[in-house]
């Protein structure tokens, strides 16, 4: 890393995450790629390999990937102050945009034309989600890990037909996953 003062790093962190968060459509994975472009390729503040691990941390943690990506980069570059500033940068644009929309929503949605626009878009967003679920589900089925397929079917039945709280299902599956991972690591270690 070249000689840069801490204040300079913090300022660049804040404005980078602010900018990326304000102008990136297409979700967390896109933002993570752009973070890498900026901090690895452009500023050379993080090396490529370490960035890959940081991205893995961002993707394995709960919460929005865009926010998690901002946190790992902020932590790596400037510790806790870096975390706070990069999260603020990542969160401010959607907060401001959605506050404005939320204030206008009640007035807009009661307008018949805007209501029709939103209603039609609902069918479109439904199609987008069906398409996403199809891709994700296909990937799991093609892996041919029968336990994963069973988890998918059981989870769907529990939350759709039995109305079990999704948090409980996630906790149960996570506990099962940890157990399975530990057992597999043990098996791998012995052989």
């Amino acid at each position: 890393m070249e000689q840069v003062s801490k204040a300079q790093i913090l300022r660049k962190l804040f404005f980078s995450t602010l900018y990326l968060s304000a102008f990136t459509f297409g979700g967390g994975y896109v933002i993570v790629t752009l973070l890498k472009n900026r901090f690895v390729d452009q500023y050379h503040w993080i090396d490529e390999e370490e960035m890959l691990d940081l991205v893995a941390i961002a993707q394995s943690s709960p919460g929005a990937i865009a926010v998690n990506g901002a946190i790992v980069v902020g932590y790596k570059l400037a510790g806790l102050p870096g975390v706070l500033l990069s999260v603020l940068g990542a969160v401010l644009p959607p907060m401001i945009i959605l506050s404005l929309i939320s204030v206008c929503y009640d007035a807009f949605a009661s307008n018949p034309l805007v209501g029709a626009l939103l209603g039609g878009m609902r069918a479109g967003v439904g199609a987008v989600i069906v398409s996403v679920v199809y891709d994700m589900g296909k990937k799991i089925v093609l892996e041919k890990d029968w336990i994963h397929i069973a988890i998918m079917i059981a989870s769907f039945c529990l939350c759709y037909f039995c109305n079990v709280n999704v948090v409980f299902i996630l906790l149960a599956v996570a506990a099962f996953g940890v157990l399975r991972a530990v057992l597999e690591q043990k098996k791998g270690g012995r052989s």
């Binding site: 994700m136 599956v173 940890v178 991972a181």
Partner: peptide
Amino acid sequence: LALLQQTLASLRPAVVAMIAKA
């Protein structure tokens, strides 16, 4: 991060099922 990533692999099918429900 192996343990965490393996746990996450088990969570993914549950997450897909829940997105389907929503």
